[in-house]
Design a protein around this nucleic acid. Sequence first.
DNA 1: AGAACAGGTTGATTTGCCTCAATTCTATCT
DNA 2: AGATAGAATTGAGGCAAATCAACCTGTTCT
Lengths: 239, 239
Amino acid sequence: MNAQTILRLPTDPHISRARTTHTHRDGHGVPRNRLRFAPHEHLFFQGDPPTGVFQVVSGTVILYKLMADGRRQIQDFSSVGDFLALTFADVHNFSAEALTDVEVDFIVQASFDRALQENAAFRQGIFTLMGDMLNASREQALLLGRKCAMERTATFLLFLDSRFVDPVTGFVDIRMSRCDMADYVGLTLETVSRMMNQLKRQGIIELPQSNRIRISDRKRLIAAAGEPDEAEYASVVGY
Amino acid sequence: MNAQTILRLPTDPHISRARTTHTHRDGHGVPRNRLRFAPHEHLFFQGDPPTGVFQVVSGTVILYKLMADGRRQIQDFSSVGDFLALTFADVHNFSAEALTDVEVDFIVQASFDRALQENAAFRQGIFTLMGDMLNASREQALLLGRKCAMERTATFLLFLDSRFVDPVTGFVDIRMSRCDMADYVGLTLETVSRMMNQLKRQGIIELPQSNRIRISDRKRLIAAAGEPDEAEYASVVGY
DNA sequence: AGAACAGGTTGATTTGCCTCAATTCTATCT
DNA sequence: AGATAGAATTGAGGCAAATCAACCTGTTCT
């Protein structure tokens, strides 16, 4: 990771500039506070004690861990519907930062715990979500542990496409820097840039601007990702 | 990964040689079948449809994913008390193989689901376990994405120590090959061997036999793992 | 318009880990 | 004890990705 990231220790005080827009109850009667965060604001930091749970309403949040010397590993991108901070530990062990403008609902821990006890459907949803997060994390471990630079990059582009593609144009607006991408796939930003431009030169993706891509040859991109074939890939990503 | 692993496709038939020793009910009245597996037998394969849940009674099980060309990423080691195959998907997306002699209790899916619905304490335990698995997987992602060979190896030895140390002798019997270790930390077996022997030469660990270690200088091992200090490390591993 | 800046791309060089190969160690079998 | 086999260690060389550095592009500010 990278010079521009300010090293932040768990004990630093921090002032959340989140703005509460309104308070309401969801379909299960659980009270929620709608909050807004601007890009680069933190929902919470590694080391903070958890006070409740967030559900993303719009925008995307990155979850990451930092090493003492500033190396960063991004662990997940949370977007609409995802829950954050589902922890039973006494401190958060990763940080959550708004990548874009973000709206989230905050549910205080006691309300969340009550809903989990009393509402079977809610509970089932949380279980499924935790299972999905675990799968995603283990898929990332395979990528980080055993894939080469091109495979990592291609896999990541398929991931972006599956989650953020505009269904009418087929384009993905990449709302993150090369550095963010690199910190997810465990490479440097230069290597990510090289791999993307190589895919462009090979006619596998279109890259009209640096943060806008479209997959023009999905089969070859899947092959470049190290997946045996499309059917197999679909089962991995789950679409 | 490595020549000696036989590539196994999800569709291959397989005969489980597991032996049922007896059937009983646990404290919650959930029916369980006690099964035994010998080293290298599989509890299930990636691609199999899940039929229930396993809880490890003794021994250790490795969870891993395989790529089409045989590259392997080990994702977790399950030992006493751990649950396996907690999935809501229609197929397993990793394989589970006995590393040692293993005893597990098998709980059919319907019984498990019922216990989850009806028993709050059981449910809480499962939630906590899923949270722990997610934390472990994300910690592994940091290791794989951002740590160098020595840091990975040192981190792994600390992990082994925290889970498998003999409290009286202080030794850890490593019940896996260098290849298994390498496939967990995303290196080759040769690199793992080099790093371990380097730690031995530096007097940080004792290595009287290739599969038996003791940490003789924990502070330096923690430093080699890239953790800022012991307190921080303890909070990461959770002891 | 020009300056300043941030992000992205591209090139040259270095390096850490992998690969391939040889040797040693340990356990098992006869 | 000697033979054999599997695993671990050690060494030499190669290569993929990191590092370091220059340049380009687009945007904001004056």
